[in-house]
């Protein structure tokens, strides 16, 4: 176990092995997302109250789950940065933050679009939407802090501290927002968490959630690999790799 961890912490090994995983991850995530969303949009039955708008759930719920677990991963990586000298953990955390923030934006956007036909408004100060909005603020803080500190090592540790402080605060924030919400409005119509949801409706959620998780790992790996190459650019293995990539003409494609 420890040996494996140590190896995972070694950038060249990680770069090689992640390069091998990446295509499989991408294919699996695309397949699962296509199956799940196709199932949700075409086959799953409409809700007896909300009709077809309930199909927004198949992207909203996975995005909301990822928004939260991405912050947990960010804080977990932060804890590793603070306790063990594993450089890779920081490169992973750096990649996690913007992708997690984009998932939070996705959860907010789909949630408010869903809110229009169900609540009659794009924005309701609902406990769930509000705490996701505050989660987005936490992401913005981490991203802004990294951008503000020049020196990479200091930025890594500062962001790690902020992420860990944030994760300690998340349950308190969630609790306070829920409490605030019950105080200010009578329990409004809840969009998710209906205990009576039939299996034909929630089953497509499984491939959607799993697919979006794999998508998250695919793009985070892509970013982490970029970060590894950038940080190790003066080391010989990275020089060789950069040389090989440039020679194979990867830069010629696209814009």
């Amino acid at each position: 176990m420890w040996k494996w961890l140590h190896k995972l912490g070694s950038p060249p090994w990680f770069y090689r092995i992640s390069g091998r995983w990446l295509p499989w991850l991408a294919v699996a995530s695309a397949a699962l997302l296509l199956v799940g969303i196709g199932w949700g949009l075409l086959i799953a039955p409409p809700d007896y109250q909300q009709g077809h708008t309930v199909r927004i759930m198949y992207i909203h719920v996975p995005a909301a789950i990822l928004a939260q677990s991405a912050y947990l991963m960010l804080a977990g990586a932060g804890l590793v940065v603070l306790v063990w000298p594993v450089r890779l953990a920081d490169l992973f955390a750096e990649a996690c933050a913007p992708v997690g923030a984009s998932m939070t934006v996705l959860a907010l956007a789909t949630g408010s679009i869903w809110g229009k036909p169900t609540w009659g408004t794009y924005w309701e100060w609902d406990a769930r939407l509000t705490s996701v909005l505050i989660l987005l603020f936490l992401y913005i803080g981490v991203i802004a802090l990294r951008a503000a500190i020049r020196e990479a090592e200091a930025a890594a540790r500062a962001c790690a501290i902020l992420a860990v402080v944030g994760v300690v605060n998340i349950p308190i924030i969630k609790y306070s927002v829920e409490w605030w919400n019950t105080l200010h409005q009578p329990a409004s119509f809840r969009v998710t968490e209906k205990p009576t949801m039939p299996a034909e409706m929630w089953l497509p959620l499984l491939p959607c959630v799993l697919g979006l998780y794999l998508f998250f790992f695919t793009v985070v790996l892509m970013r982490t690999r970029n970060n590894v190459l950038r940080r190790d650019r003066r080391k010989s293995w990275a020089q060789n790799e950069i040389h090989r990539l440039n020679a194979s003409g990867e830069t010629e494609h696209g814009v």
Binding site: I37, R55, I59, S102, I113
Partner: peptide, 22 residues
């Protein structure tokens, strides 16, 4: 989508946009 096409498809449009950005 039973009259709610604009909502459902715009939600998936936003999702596609964010996935492509990623």
């Amino acid at each position: 989508m039973g009259g709610h096409g604009a909502y459902v498809w715009s939600a998936y449009g936003v999702a596609l946009g964010i996935l492509i950005w990623n």
